[in-house]
């Protein structure tokens, strides 16, 4: 039985979170794991879209979300947040990007700040599941093809009209057949 830590408040993340972290096999142990994550996180903030192994991308996602949410929550005048950003972002010019570009961009988002997609494996070269991680609102073309509004295609409009006409015809037939039927008297008691 554990007790929730209450020393600091955190914002709720809007992504699914694994109950346990993944180890990310590393000879340096947990410290090396964070080093690896730091590298990918910096790259994510720099390029806004990366192709990675699924495990690494999934792990990085949580850290990226947390860092952005902290930046939104406390701003750049908060000492602890700045220290955290300084640890996680290796290229120091990107700290400015975090507080001046990303935090304002995501401040009124109601969804997660990042997206994670499954990518195809290049069998037999790559055996691990691949994925694409990106920051939302990036300048690149979307990964999933946008759904077109197919309702306004000319054949769909014509088909819709044809359906309406057919239905109207049917209703007319039904009303005519009802009129021809003899009336059945219903007596109330």
């Amino acid at each position: 039985m554990n007790q929730a830590e209450i020393s600091q408040l955190v914002s709720k993340l809007r992504i699914r979170i694994n109950p346990r972290h993944k180890n990310l096999k590393n000879p340096e142990g947990p410290q090396g794991r964070l080093k690896k994550l730091r590298k990918t996180l910096t790259a994510l903030f720099k390029y806004e879209r990366l192709e990675l192994n699924y495990t690494l991308a999934d792990e990085t996602r949580g850290y990226a979300e947390r860092l952005i949410s902290e930046a939104i929550r406390h701003g750049d005048t908060h000492k602890a947040t700045m220290e955290m950003a300084d640890y996680w972002i290796e290229e120091k010019q990107l700290i400015h990007k975090l507080f001046k570009v990303l935090a304002p961009r995501f401040s009124d988002y109601k969804t997660s700040y990042t997206m994670l997609y499954r990518a195809p494996k290049a069998y037999p070269d790559i055996v691990y599941p691949r994925s694409i991680i990106e920051l939302r609102g990036n300048p690149f073309p979307p990964i999933l093809s946008q759904k077109l509004d197919q309702r306004n295609f000319i054949h769909n409009v014509l088909l819709e009209e044809a359906k309406k006409a057919y239905r109207a015809e049917k209703y007319e037939q039904i009303t005519k057949s009802l009129g021809e039927q003899p009336k059945v008297e219903v007596s109330d008691k």
Binding site: A4, E5, V10, Y63, M84, W88
Partner: peptide, 10 residues
């Protein structure tokens, strides 16, 4: 600095 470890504890 482990942000997710913190998050999982709170």
């Amino acid at each position: 600095y482990d942000l997710m470890k913190q998050y999982r504890r709170t």
